[in-house]
């Protein structure tokens, strides 16, 4: 009896980890693309929130989660387009515009939610899962990780693909150069602004997808302000990973585990205030920074607009 109880407890812990971790993973991977290209994308929280709203709307209207994901990607990219035009093309402050976009997205989605859903609070039907043959028979990890919505596997695969892309392809080098030595990239005949523009749009797509996963798969409904700092955690993951997508995956798992622990312990009736457990991931990050702070490195031109010929 005890054995079964603890196993189901552990399984729910893994499920929670995956559900909380995937949006963070997508946000972190997205932010990483921008940061590699030299754009500190503080607007990612707003992109996620718009993605969460658009994704829910799409899934609710069409009945298909995949259409919802497309909506989410579109929503995130719409905010990213604004950010790219203002910060990359025109060269306005990335931090100020990013905060402005986040605020605007918070207000706009809360208003839209009020108009459309505040009377009915619709919920999406339960999510269909796809069990990985063989692996899903494993105890705990099987039902927890290998019997989930396919988007979970796609997100994990994306981390691996991006890792190869950065290391093995010309595109990865171009991206890196846009953040480290934009002038050199310009000299080599690659358009820095176009590279950064594309990078910001990719960030928007992934952040929007992460938001859509949160509302469609994670919660099954849209709640105003539901991202609750997930975008900011994505920024932290990207910064700590120093350009390595697999580190983002590990970080997202760590943060996901802490977030999942808060609900799991409550369900298990253990009387620790959630606030104490919620501190764990942030405290862990600060500890890492204190220990390895000296070695933390970011792209040299991060946060600076590129103006050709300017010194």
């Amino acid at each position: 009896m005890d054995m079964i109880l603890s196993q189901s407890f552990l399984t729910s812990l893994v499920v929670g980890l995956v559900m909380a971790g995937v949006p963070l993973l997508l946000a972190g991977l997205g932010e990483q693309i921008s940061e590699k290209a030299g754009v500190l994308n503080i607007g990612i929280e707003g992109m996620m929130l718009i993605g969460a709203y658009a994704g829910f709307l799409g899934a609710w209207q069409t009945g298909s989660l995949w259409v919802g994901f497309l909506y989410g990607i579109g929503g995130g990219m719409a905010v990213a387009l604004l950010m790219a035009v203002l910060c990359v093309r025109i060269g306005l402050s990335q931090i100020v515009i990013g905060i402005g976009l986040t605020l605007g997205a918070e207000g706009l989605t809360a208003l839209l939610h009020h108009v459309q859903f505040s009377r009915s609070y619709p919920r999406l039907p339960g999510v269909e899962t796809w069990a990985v043959p063989g692996l899903s028979a494993l105890p705990v990890v099987g039902p927890g990780l290998f019997d989930r919505h396919p988007m979970v596997y796609l997100a994990i695969a994306l981390a691996v693909i991006l890792s190869m892309l950065y290391r093995k392809t010309h595109l990865g080098l171009t991206l890196q150069a846009a953040g480290d030595k934009p002038a050199a990239l310009d000299g080599a005949g690659v358009d820095v602004l176009r590279t950064r523009f594309a990078a910001v749009l990719c960030t928007g797509a992934l952040a929007g997808l992460g938001g859509a996963f949160m509302s469609e798969v994670g919660a099954g409904l849209f709640i105003p302000f539901m991202t609750n700092g997930a975008g900011f955690i994505g920024i932290v993951l990207a910064m700590l990973a120093r350009g390595r997508p697999l580190w983002v995956l590990a970080g997202a798992a760590l943060f996901g585990a802490c977030l999942s622990m808060t609900t799991a312990l409550q369900v298990a009736g253990i009387n620790i205030p959630t606030d104490v457990i919620q501190m764990l991931p942030f405290a862990a990050v600060m500890a890492v920074l204190v220990i390895f702070g000296r070695r933390a490195s970011l792209p040299a031109a991060l946060g600076l607009p590129y103006v050709r010929g300017a010194r």
Binding site: V96, G100, L103, G104, A105, E106, G107, L111
Partner: peptide
């Protein structure tokens, strides 16, 4: 929340 939209627009 409308005030947030207005401030963002203004910015």
């Amino acid at each position: 929340y409308f005030s947030l939209v207005l401030v963002a627009n203004l910015l």
